[in-house]
Structures are given as structure tokens and as C-alpha cells.
Computed example of a mutant assay.
Amino acid sequence: MTKLTRRSFAAMAMASTAAACAPRVAEMEIEPPAPVSFVEGYGPIEDSGYILPGIPSEYLQGVNRRMTGWYNGEAEPNTLDVDPYAKFLYHVREDGSATRYPVGVGRAGRSIRGTATMKFMRKWPGWTPTQNMLRTEPEVYGDFRAGIPGGLRSPLGARALYLFRGSRDTYYRIHGTNDLESIGNSGSAGCIRMFNQDVIHLYNQIEAPMQVLIRSPEESQRVDPENFGRGIELPPKIISAEELLGEEAVANDRAPILDDA
């Protein structure tokens, strides 16, 4: 197994692709559309009755994709190690290996720090903005104060991991997202975002409870100075109420089919 150094991660960035071709309509004698190719692990998937689209390769350039190898960080085995400065999450295993996932993190001053415990996980969770979100950014979250049910419209995506300190809910989550541009950048209200393909992959590898370490700037610079500060800070993305709560949006959505509800 390859050692998870900064350079070895970069060397592993090349991935094979899988092509899916549309059938030819011979009677019309037309050319079929060009094959659609996806980076391995990021193609369309079926989950809970939904067909999730593949992730376009433009969002998976360089290190901004899932990679596995030997872990060289400072977290204990069987933990999740989040680096909000290099925009990565590591699932650290007992044997010293790890899978590294690209993530999107909170804008400046909005990220959780230190340690937490992931107490439980949910498939296709519903979402309600916190009181702090409603108070500080009413223009972004005000229309959604009643919440969004779990499904394709939910901002928490396909999976969510819930972070606690002691018995107190931090209201920070590790979750999926359809906001592909945010992965590898800072743009959320503080939660840790993942591609839906990645958060499903992670969900299938772990069990709750699990310790979570959120790296400090000093630790990030010690462990991964090459990627420290990668990405940009994005403005909050304002989604119209019509897009998520309008009649058409509601009509086109339906509850997920959960096999472990």
C-alpha cells in the first residue's frame, strides 16, 4: 500500500475512467452522443430509490478526489481527522491506512475546532437552519426556518454525521452536498461538506460513535504544508424559496426508500 505523504497523494491523483455509451439509432443514421466518462468512484449511483448523477471531472482535478494509502497525520486510529485548512477529511483505520476525501468547510470564523464525537449517522436526513444561522444570515436561511425534509432537496445531501461534545449537540455536521463548487473551498456556514459519492462511501466504512479531530492551523502546517490554505473563500450561496419549496420542487421530490429506517 502506498504511503500517504503529500507527494504520494499527488502521484495517486490519476484515476481510471468508466465510459457509458448511448445506443445507436440505426434507422436515423445519426451519430451517437460522445461517451460520458467519469473518474472512478464518482459515476452515477443508485441509492435509496434515487439515481444520483456522476460528478463532472472538472470538480475532481488534482487532489480534489478520494484517495487511499498510508496515513501520516497525528490523529489516533479509528478516528476522523478533518483538516479545514487543506480541505481534507481522513478516515484513519486501525492498520495505519487512511482514505482521504476532499471537503468544503466553513467560511472564516465559522468552522468548528478541536475534538468532537460523531454520535450517530443518518441516510438522507432532513435539515432545519439553526437559530444562529437565522440570526446572522436571515437573507440566506430565513425562508427555510420550517426546515426541508430528507430527500433530494435537503441541503444535507445523501448522508449526515452528527457531531457532539459530551451530551451537547454542536449543530455541526459532516454531510453530502449538491454544491459541487464548494468542495475544496470555504463556503459553508460551518459544516463539513462532501461529494455525495464520498459521504456514501465514508458512511459505509464507519460506525458510530467515532472520535473526530478538527486540525488547528499549526497541525495542518506541520502535517500538510503543501496543501495548507488551498482553495478560496466563496460567498454564501442564496437559494430561492421557490427552488426548494415551490410546488414544482415539492412535486418532483419524494421520500427516500430507506432499508434501515
Rank of each mutant, 00 (worst) to 15 (best):
G54C: 06
G54R: 03
I55S: 03
I55R: 01
I55W: 00
I55Q: 02
P56R: 05
P56L: 01
S57Q: 09
S57L: 02
S57I: 04
S57N: 06
E58H: 00
E58T: 00
E58R: 02
E58G: 00
E58L: 00
E58W: 00
Y59Q: 01
Y59H: 05
L60R: 03
L60H: 02
L60K: 03
L60W: 00
L60Q: 03
Q61E: 12
Q61C: 04
Q61I: 08
Q61R: 11
Q61M: 07
Q61Y: 00
G62T: 04
G62A: 11
G62Y: 07
G62I: 01
V63M: 06
V63N: 03
V63H: 01
N64Y: 00
N64I: 04
N64E: 05
N64G: 01
R65A: 06
R65K: 14
R66H: 09
R66K: 14
R66C: 06
M67W: 11
M67D: 00
M67P: 00
T68D: 12
T68W: 05
T68L: 05
T68R: 07
T68M: 07
G69M: 10
G69N: 02
G69W: 08
G69E: 13
W70A: 02
W70T: 06
W70S: 02
Y71K: 10
Y71S: 03
N72S: 09
N72K: 14
N72L: 10
G73Y: 06
G73E: 06
E74P: 04
A75Q: 09
A75I: 07
A75M: 01
E76L: 14
E76V: 04
E76H: 07
P77A: 11
P77L: 08
P77M: 09
P77E: 04
N78V: 15
N78P: 13
N78W: 04
N78Q: 15
N78M: 15
T79R: 10
T79A: 15
L80Q: 10
D81F: 11
D81P: 03
D81T: 02
D81R: 08
D81V: 09
V82K: 07
V82S: 11
V82Y: 10
D83T: 05
D83W: 03
D83K: 03
P84Y: 12
P84C: 13
P84G: 12
P84T: 15
Y85H: 15
Y85T: 13
Y85F: 15
Y85M: 08
A86I: 07
A86D: 08
A86V: 09
A86N: 08
K87R: 14
K87L: 11
K87A: 14
K87C: 14
K87W: 08
K87F: 13
K87S: 12
F88S: 07
F88C: 06
L89P: 14
L89W: 07
L89M: 14
L89C: 13
L89Q: 10
L89H: 10
L89I: 05
L89V: 10
Y90F: 15
Y90L: 03
